[in-house]
Simulated assay, not measured.
Amino acid sequence: MSLSPPPFLDAVRDRGFCFVEADVMRAWLEDEGSLGDWGPFVDSWNRLEPDRYLAQLGKQRRRRHAVFRLEHGVEGARVQPCPHQPHYQSLAYNTLQGDIERWFEPIEASVAQGESLKAILRHCHALFASLAPGVAAWHAEVHQFRIEAQADVPGQPTPEGMHRDGVDYVLVLMVDRENVARGTTRIHDMQGREVGAFTLARAFDAALVDDARVFHGVTPVEALDPALPSHRDVLVVTLRDADRTPDPGLQPR
């Protein structure tokens, strides 16, 4: 299937980012494929593993990770899983945990092969191929994140602060929020000026980011009721031109 680019893509082209409301994003995903396994997909966040690298710094979050190759196919994107591999960012992009290979637990096979994730990846290909039609294939990294807020300790969605990821494009998709406040996504331009702020509050709310043009970060989340469990669950997909090796500092386009 090959769809016309959605109107919200113009905002990414013009400003380098866009907030997409849940109803719009869900409709677009359903045009790309089935979300028939969305319930089990959401439930898989309950089985994420602790991020042991961040725990060494006294911070907490849970995550899983997988890598795919996205290519043009006869009926849209062809989604190919890659062997399990580490996640790597240079210090130029991640001053907290850069220049190390971080091995996270893989995304569960049922999720990686499921309808919902495939629809999301096909969606990413359709969106960002429209912005970069010369790219033959994408290296896509998929991250499941759960940020938990405790009674006296806010959760840190982006402990590295305002940052870029060292890729070409980023999708952040809200999956679930339970008993949390705040968690505002902030966008800064290359001069450090805030050019956008919004909160992913509902399942399917999404942020689209041109990583070479803007910085992004998320404010801490706090428990609304400290006596109850609280979490912020998101799926992050990053896309990089598969023919370009990662470099220590992408220049703005």
Rank of each mutant, 00 (worst) to 15 (best):
H231M: 10
D168Q: 14
D225L: 11
L200Q: 09
V234P: 02
V175K: 07
R182A: 15
A223G: 15
F198N: 04
Q191G: 03
D165A: 06
T185I: 05
A227M: 11
A181D: 11
G161W: 07
L228F: 13
D225S: 14
Y169I: 13
M190F: 10
H163K: 08
P229T: 02
D168G: 14
A212R: 13
Y169K: 14
G183E: 06
H231D: 02
T199A: 15
L171D: 02
P226N: 08
Y169M: 14
L173N: 05
D211T: 09
L208H: 04
R177E: 03
V167L: 13
A206R: 04
D225N: 15
L235S: 07
R177L: 06
I187G: 05
A227P: 06
A181M: 14
A207N: 00
V180F: 10
E222K: 06
G192H: 07
P226V: 07
F198M: 07
A181W: 02
A181Y: 06
F198S: 10
F204Q: 00
S230A: 15
H188M: 13
V221H: 12
A197F: 01
D205E: 00
P226W: 11
R202C: 02
R177H: 11
T185Y: 02
L235R: 08
M162A: 12
R186H: 07
T219E: 09
Q191V: 11
H231P: 08
I187R: 12
A201Y: 01
R193L: 04
I187P: 08
Y169Q: 12
G217P: 00
P229H: 12
